[in-house]
């Protein structure tokens, strides 16, 4: 449980960056840095956050920061961790530096997953933070492995033949947990206390840890910037993005929902799902509902909760 009054007022993330008004990823980065316990270094993959926070000659970071390519942020972070360790062994510097590797959903789910898998397997002491805005927003809203079923993007447009993206969202935390790492979790920027707690736990864990956080993007989701936080909360409450943590292979739900919120309420607020409101795609909504319930029940079963 995080008490806002006790959180540090020191901002490691400066204003003046060029992310959109109402940007979800920006909130997720700022909250993650609030969980810092000491010196911290960030390796950032290419993506919205990297591009908009460090436009030369300006930088929005007040901590050591490295830009890596789309595919190798985990590899660069591994090297950084090894370098700090080597310096400490040679007695050239003292004290631990926490390393956070930040990547968007494109750099994590599609392009960077090979390097991430390597990092998790080698057991580096790194926190991997994936901010998930469910498409390649930086390059102009192309579909990614994290795009949910039925969402219209520029490369999976909704028309007469297909209702947006076909296929489901990848279960990234499932993949990470299968590596046998000690901590993996999903979170939502809407529930800040839960998210900051998870970041704190991930930093404290000795060894690799992964946090997957949902961060709505008003531009790509075609929603009102005012509703960014509301959408992040609704994604969890509709069961589309269940929040849970995996401690050494043991699943635990962070939020138990009695009844799932109707998915239509969540879809209504977003432009990318507007086509599903038409009567011709009613079946698609029903299918998405079925898929969501199935996935939610699977997580419940893994967590050992009662299924109602």
């Amino acid at each position: 449980m995080v008490v806002l009054k006790n959180l540090s007022t020191e901002e490691l993330y400066a204003p003046g960056h060029r992310l959109c008004a109402g940007c979800g990823p920006s909130i997720s980065i700022r909250m993650a840095l609030k969980a810092a316990r000491g010196p911290i270094a960030v390796v950032n993959a290419t993506g919205c956050v990297e591009v908009s926070t460090t436009i030369f000659p300006y930088t929005a970071w007040r901590i050591p920061w490295v830009h890596a390519l789309f595919e190798n942020q985990a590899a660069v972070a591994s090297g950084l961790e090894a370098a700090y360790q080597s310096l400490e062994e040679k007695g050239k510097r003292k004290g631990k530096v926490d390393i956070i590797a930040v990547g968007g959903d494109g750099g994590t789910f599609d392009i960077g997953i090979q390097a991430i898998s390597g990092m998790l397997e080698r057991g580096h002491d790194i926190v991997y933070l994936c901010y998930d805005n469910e498409a390649y927003m930086n390059t102009g809203i192309q579909r990614s492995g994290a795009t949910p079923r039925g969402a219209a993007t520029t490369t999976s447009p909704a028309g007469k033949v297909i209702p947006g993206k076909r296929g489901k969202k990848k279960d990234f935390i499932g993949i990470c947990a299968a590596h046998g790492i000690s901590y993996a979790a999903t979170a939502s920027i809407g529930f800040f206390s839960d998210y900051i707690d998870k970041m704190k736990k991930a930093i404290e864990v000795d060894g690799p840890a992964v946090v997957h956080v949902i961060a709505p993007c008003p531009l790509g989701w075609r929603s009102n910037p005012t509703e960014t936080v509301k959408l992040a909360k609704m994604a969890v409450l509709t069961g589309l993005f269940p929040i849970y943590e995996v401690n050494d292979g043991i699943y635990k739900m962070s939020m138990k929902l009695g009844r799932l919120l109707p998915i239509e309420e969540y879809f209504k607020l977003q432009g990318r799902f507007q086509h599903l409101m038409k009567p011709e795609w009613k079946n698609e909504v029903e299918e998405i509902k079925k898929d969501t319930e199935k996935h939610y029940k699977k997580i419940l079963r893994l967590a050992g909760e009662k299924i109602t």
Binding site: A14, P15, G16, A21, T54, P57, Y58, T59, A60, R62
Partner: peptide, 16 residues
């Protein structure tokens, strides 16, 4: 970049 947090000098207030 040698100045941490230099983006403070870039005023985004005029985006409103």
């Amino acid at each position: 970049m040698f100045e941490p947090g230099s983006s403070v000098e870039y005023k985004t207030g005029d985006w409103r």
